[in-house]
Design a protein around this nucleic acid. Structure first.
Length: 275
DNA sequence: CCGGACGCCTGTCGGC
DNA sequence: TGCCGACAGGCGTCCG
């Protein structure tokens, strides 16, 4: 569910609440997530202070004085800060209780998420190895994409969703980025020229920074760390808008199946490039 | 190496 | 009303 803008929003909300707090107890009610929760490891975090709250792609990183926690929200995960740690409800799998009686609660109905312990700096966790650059960092350039796309027939949308190419872009934002760049989502990436990649880079910066400013996209259950929804769904131009008029040319938005998932595009504004 | 299909899990929605 | 299939924001593995 949550892509980079949602995870960034969660991190910004958590940071002032968690910084400097000490973890006093970890409660794992259900550990069979995507990766089995290592309760033994996480318990080593008890008594440690939270030194920073960070993000890498769609992962939340809690850096402790002697270790770290890496959290992924999967499709349905919600990370909430709760001032008095109320009794847990259905799918509230993990609580990290803090020294001010608040808690950080991981809720995840589909259990595609993960809560991982790491004995050192969490950015060193193996799940983060091989992730591509942050899309909003200076290293994410048109030249970089051109090089990574060389010789590949993979569709543009799937290329942008591949975390090894660029971190943090999922189905919603890949669709919006292709639209803003004026490129067909099924476009084989080897056909894009440098000027096309420049449009992709400009589009992804614009889409992601706007989405962060709006607090992310709430289609259904996404909430930030205080339980508030995002507002970027009001600005989606193609995602989920099958048959609705394109905001630029009024042609009906089309949907197609790509990599087992839905892709949305405007047949008027996103025409395949000539070979 | 590359790309496509599938599975993991629960919940919701639309059609019959 | 109830049942059943399709689908949902991600990602790892397997196979051709």
């Amino acid at each position: 569910m949550p892509e980079l803008p949602e995870v960034e929003t969660v991190c910004r909300g958590l940071s002032p609440r968690l910084l400097g707090r000490t973890i006093v107890e970890i409660r794992v009610r259900r550990g069979d997530l995507r990766h089995e929760v290592d309760g033994q490891g996480l318990n080593q975090g008890c008594g440690q202070r939270i030194a920073s709250v960070g993000r890498r792609g769609k992962y939340v990183l809690l850096s402790l004085t002697g270790g770290g926690v890496v959290i992924h929200l999967g499709m349905s995960g919600v990370l909430r800060w709760l001032p008095d740690c109320p009794p847990p409800g259905l799918h509230d799998h993990v609580d990290m209780v803090l020294d001010d009686a608040a808690c950080l609660r991981f809720h995840d109905p589909r259990r595609f998420g993960a809560v991982l312990w790491w004995p050192g700096d969490p950015v060193q966790h193996p799940v983060l190895a091989g992730l591509g650059p942050e899309p909003l960092s200076p290293s994410c350039t048109a030249d970089y994409f051109l090089e990574r796309a060389a010789g590949r027939r993979l569709a543009l949308r799937l290329f942008l969703m591949d975390g090894r190419v660029v971190a943090g872009i999922g189905n919603i934002y890949a669709a919006e980025i292709c639209f803003v760049a004026g490129l067909h989502p099924g476009q084989p990436v080897r056909r894009l020229a440098l000027a096309d990649w420049q449009r992709v880079v400009a589009a992804l910066r614009q889409v992601l920074t706007t989405a962060i400013r709006q607090g992310g996209t709430t289609l259904k259950d996404y909430r930030d760390s205080d339980g508030r929804p995002g507002y970027f769904q009001q600005q989606l131009q193609v995602y989920g808008r099958t048959d609705a008029p394109c905001p630029r040319c009024a042609a009906p938005i089309q949907r197609l199946k790509q990599g087992g998932r839905s892709a949305f595009f405007c047949p008027g504004c996103q025409v395949p490039l000539p070979e």
